[in-house]
Nucleic acid binder design. Structure first.
Length: 578
DNA sequence: GCCGTTTTCGGCCCGACTGTTTTCAGTCG
């Protein structure tokens, strides 16, 4: 039972309690608990093993959730969950995915007409049987049918890179509408979350109705969900929902803060405001006494009004950032200009598209001081992975390129590296004698993803224990929305990595982001170094570094934990092996 | 179910939009 499993269980319990009409605040407690657990930088198992009482030190976990966590960890079951399932069929949870349909209506439909599946709901809507229920009419039936269709086609949350591209295009479009003075995307996208449910765009303008009209008639709009004076929503291709809100200049900062979220972060801020006799809304910070405006125009002023330094969007997840801000212990987050080089990339020697020199040129354009060339090893046959012989030849080629660069009086350096496969038995794919000649070795898993957790963990630890691996590439092997991570005990991997001076990669490809945010935090809190690298297969992909940096920021990573912020000499010192 | 510089009970963030309503409940973020 990992934290994620317990968090998912609590989240499901919250949904079931909601449908059963339970106390909304009890429901919120389970939701809060789930979020908190998901974001913890350590495993609950370790807490319970050490001292059960430690659970209640975690904010949001009280007596009730404590007992349930212990029950789940000890028995693998949760009696509350089992009881709820006796009363409510789990298929009702699917119905919560239908926009416009919430727990109250689902309960009524289930109890009144025995509707418990998406198919049954569709049938009832088509037959016009839903309009018999209070608050439902023909229009509700039509909307439910449209929404069911959308849910069936939907592929889940969008990858951040897709959402960012769409958001930037739409912000450009809106800025082109006459009278618009400001437009910016907010929401989880501004927090750089790895997947995005919908895009929020805030607009300041002279004529709100004009903006709303232009937005809902955008040529790519597939369906308008709502259109009002200050808020409109529309579905775009790939079922990406976009919400546009028009905001007064004097409230813009408050709205930006509010719509950037997360919800948990905002709830905590509002609670804090309330204790100080203030009220925060998307319109500003107001005195509860006389309703006078205290702040609103700039985002930072919202935090200032409640006695906090401004917290960057990447940290606003309700994972202890407010407490850290309060005690002036916010992390000094890694910044893009602190990255001195990229330590994972491929060239035409294996499956990359560009040559060693082309990659070097691009890196120099980016202002880097070094990069590591890390082509695949022979096990990745499909990528023309290098054997020892070809790797030795490539090293000679890199020496030649380095010589040519040195003659231009550039301080730029190429490091000779390899992304060597850690084989199923934990041995490395290339002779140690050759790997020892390299400046930089990345160890990676590219096969045998279906191993058990123990097998995979042992495999990686055995690789690390060779003492030859500087960095573990994409440590969980996941592809966002495409492939689940392989089973691995990261805690044990981190321990072994610490012992052998191995760093963890934050792979910056937007479909990897591996380590992910919370794992980054676990890694640096375990005292590990990370390498923020792009795994580029062509020049252009080097720009993906921004996704890795933001993932690191979401994981509270500071520059001192990132090996590629080191000066070339310091990096070489760090890379020296045992 | 959680929590406490108005504390162990009685609160718990705030507002817009829709569809069905003659004043509002449900949903969403």
């Amino acid at each position: 039972m990992e934290n994620t499993d317990i968090a998912n269980l609590f989240s499901t319990i919250a949904d079931l309690l909601e449908i059963s009409g339970d106390n909304p605040f009890r429901i919120r407690s389970y939701r809060n608990g789930a979020r908190t657990i998901e974001g913890l930088p350590y495993s609950l198992i370790s807490v319970v093993e050490r001292d059960e009482a430690g659970l209640e030190e975690i904010p949001g976990i009280g007596k009730g959730l404590h007992e349930k966590i212990v029950e789940i960890l000890k028995t693998g079951k949760c009696s509350l969950y089992d009881e709820l399932l006796k009363k409510l069929p789990p298929t009702l949870l699917d119905l919560l995915d239908i926009p416009g349909l919430g727990p109250k209506k689902i309960k009524v439909l289930y109890e009144g007409a025995g509707i418990k599946t998406m198919d049954a709901l569709e049938k009832a809507a088509k037959e016009g049987r839903l309009r018999a229920f209070p608050g439902m009419g023909e229009k509700s039936e039509a909307n439910i049918l449209l929404s069911i269709e959308a849910v069936r086609k939907r592929s889940g949350r969008s990858n951040i890179s897709k959402a960012l591209a769409k958001a930037e295009a739409l912000v450009g479009y809106i800025k082109g509408i006459p009278g618009v003075t400001r437009a910016i995307h907010a929401g989880s996208l501004r927090r750089w979350k790895e997947t995005i449910g919908d895009i929020d765009i805030l607009v300041a303008c002279a004529d709100a109705l004009e903006v709303m009209e232009k937005f809902v008639t955008h040529p790519e709009v597939e369906r308008v969900l709502a259109k009002g004076e200050t808020k409109s929503s529309a579905l775009f291709a790939n079922h990406l929902q976009v919400d546009v809100r028009v905001i007064d200049e004097k409230s813009f900062g408050a709205a930006l803060q509010y719509f950037t979220g997360s919800r948990e972060h905002n709830v905590a801020l509002r609670l804090r405001a309330k204790k100080r006799g203030l009220k925060i809304s998307e319109y500003g910070v107001f005195s509860e006494k006389d309703g006078s405006r205290v702040a609103g125009k700039e985002e930072a002023d919202i935090y200032k009004a409640i006695g906090l330094p401004c917290i960057v969007p990447q940290l606003r997840e309700g994972r202890g950032e407010i407490e850290a801000a309060e005690s002036m212990k916010l992390p000094d987050l890694i910044q893009p200009n602190q990255i001195r080089g990229d330590l994972h990339m491929h060239t035409t020697w294996s499956d990359g598209r560009d040559s060693i020199e082309e990659m070097a040129e691009e890196a120099m354009k980016r202002g880097y001081e070094y990069i590591a060339i890390t082509d695949h090893s022979r096990a990745v046959g499909i990528a023309h992975g290098l054997n020892e012989e070809r790797l030795l030849k490539q090293m000679e080629e890199i020496d030649r390129v380095n010589d040519r660069i040195r003659k231009t009086a550039s301080p730029f350096t190429l490091l000779k590296g390899s992304e060597v496969d850690i084989m199923a038995d934990g041995t490395l794919d290339l002779d140690h004698s050759v790997l020892e000649k390299l400046d930089f070795v990345i160890g990676a898993i590219h096969s045998g993803f279906t191993m058990t957790e123990k097998e995979m963990t042992d495999r990686i630890i055995k690789g690390i224990s060779t003492g030859l691996i500087n960095v573990i590439a994409h440590p969980t092997g996941r592809l966002i929305n495409r492939r689940e991570p392989y089973a691995v005990n990261l805690k044990k991997v981190f321990d072994a990595a610490k012992e052998h001076g191995t760093a963890m990669e934050i792979n910056s490809h937007p479909y990897r982001l591996d380590l992910k945010d919370i794992h980054c935090r676990q890694a640096v809190e375990s005292g590990l170094y990370v390498s923020i690298a792009t795994d580029s297969h062509n020049r252009k992909q080097m720009e993906n570094i921004i996704y890795g940096i933001n993932t690191a920021q979401r994981g509270w990573v500071e520059a001192e934990s990132v090996i590629n912020t080191k000066k070339p000499g310091d990096l070489r010192e760090f890379l020296k092996r045992g």
